[in-house]
Design a protein around this nucleic acid. Structure first.
Lengths: 119, 119
DNA sequence: AGAACCAGTTTGTAATGTAAACCTAAAAAA
DNA sequence: TTTTTTAGGTTTACATTACAAACTGGTTCT
């Protein structure tokens, strides 16, 4: 596929900044506490909560809500294999698209203009 | 800034897939025709039109609507210096954040879990 | 004249992301 | 003991967004 087309079609579930941050952070953890994740990403609790819900629905993460000593609520999050694959793929895709474009830009001297010159 | 925080705060005007594609394409051109850009990115006319409007409003591009031989309407687009700087910065920022995270991941053996372990 | 086409723009709408308000329970203060 | 504050999130409300579909104004074909 043309690199610009690929770029325009990136998976927005993963690409969205807050979720890319969450997924990337999680892919470096075995398990993460809600509040830890919040500190890491700088998101508000509300936003973190709803982004996590969206990621869980897509089965990219698993959320576990429980209580510490039957008292304090704690939410922990793990990335799924599918989630890890998705975020990995996304970073690789970004890099590969960017490389492809830079190579192309280098050899046509940056003067593409019209449809008629499209190769 | 913590890399995950930086990631979560990326400029969405530039980061959005369609617009990142448009800006990146334009930064490799001196000038581009509307229809050429459409072919390159695979966007529909409607979407391309509204994304372009948004980018123009932010002064990242300049749009010129004119007629060929006073007959056929033609819209051409150029990226501004500001736009070129923004898209350039964005790609560099993505790469640098990713590098920073990979380095960090490498030396703490991927078991970060809770706030109390945050360095 | 009418039909089809071209090059885009505008409109309508469903989904998105965010901040602010809210909830439940525990700990601290009065 | 009652009240207040804090902790750990969730839910709600709203403004913004992105997209597809419908539309516009002109042109060429028949």
């Amino acid at each position: 596929m043309l690199p610009y087309k690929e770029l325009a079609r990136l998976d927005k579930l993963v690409h969205e900044p807050a979720r890319l941050a969450i997924l990337t952070a999680l892919s470096a953890c075995t398990l993460a506490e809600f509040l830890f994740l919040q500190e890491l990403t700088g998101l508000t609790k509300g936003n973190l909560s709803s982004h996590l819900a969206k990621l869980e629905k897509a089965e990219l993460i698993v959320i576990d809500k429980h209580f510490i000593r039957k008292k304090i609520p704690q939410t922990t999050v793990r990335i799924t294999d599918e989630g890890r694959a998705a975020v990995d793929r996304h970073w690789k895709q970004l890099a590969s698209i960017h490389r492809a474009i830079q190579r192309q830009g280098a050899h046509n001297e940056n003067h593409i203009v019209s449809r008629t010159t499209l190769t």
